[in-house]
C-alpha cells in the first residue's frame, strides 16, 4: 500500500505534515485543524450521533448525496477534534467504493499519528473510522 497514490486533498495533508519534524509541531497542527473545523450545530450533538468508545465526546453526522458520503463531526476536546478533522478530510465526499479502498492506517502513519490509532487508545480514532465504514459500507 505504500506506493498507493492518494486523492489530492489527502496528499496535501500528508505533504503538510511532512514539514513538521517533532510531535509538538504535529500536535499543534492537529489542534489547528480542529479549530478550523466548523462546529456542529447543537441539535446535531445527539446521543445517536455520538461515537461510542471515545473518552471525550465525539459526534459524527453522515449524509449521502448522489453516491457520495458527506461526513461532518465535532468533539469537545481539541486534539480529538483535530483527529475528527483529519478523518473527515480522508473520508468525506467520497463514494462507498472509494472509502473501502482507503487505508487509514497507512495515511495516519504517514502523518506521524499512528500512535493514536490503537483500538485501546481512549481518543476513539479507531471508533470514528469504524463508524464511517459501517455507515458507508453497511
Amino acid at each position: 500500500m505504500t506506493c498507493m497514490t492518494y486523492p489530492e486533498n489527502i496528499q496535501d495533508l500528508i505533504d503538510d505534515f511532512a514539514f513538521l519534524d517533532d510531535w509538538e509541531d504535529r500536535y499543534m497542527h492537529v489542534i489547528d485543524l480542529g479549530k478550523a473545523l466548523p462546529p456542529l450545530p447543537l441539535e446535531a450533538k445527539t446521543d445517536v450521533n455520538k461515537v461510542k468508545g471515545c473518552a471525550s465526546q465525539v459526534w459524527l453526522v453522515s449524509d449521502q448525496k448522489n453516491d457520495a458520503w458527506k461526513f461532518s463531526g465535532d468533539s469537545d476536546a481539541h486534539i480529538v477534534k483535530g483527529l475528527v478533522a483529519i478523518v473527515l478530510e480522508i473520508y468525506s465526499g467520497r463514494t462507498a467504493e472509494e472509502i473501502s479502498k482507503l487505508d487509514a492506517n497507512d495515511i495516519l502513519s504517514k502523518l506521524g499519528l499512528s500512535e493514536h490509532l490503537s483500538a485501546q487508545r481512549a481518543n476513539g480514532l479507531a471508533a470514528m473510522i469504524a463508524r464511517i465504514k459501517t455507515e458507508a459500507l453497511g
Binding site: S56, A77, V80, A122
Partner: peptide, 9 residues
C-alpha cells in the same frame, strides 16, 4: 481546553 487534551500532552 478539555482535560483529555491536557492529559495527552
Amino acid at each position: 481546553a478539555h482535560a483529555h487534551d491536557l492529559a495527552q500532552i
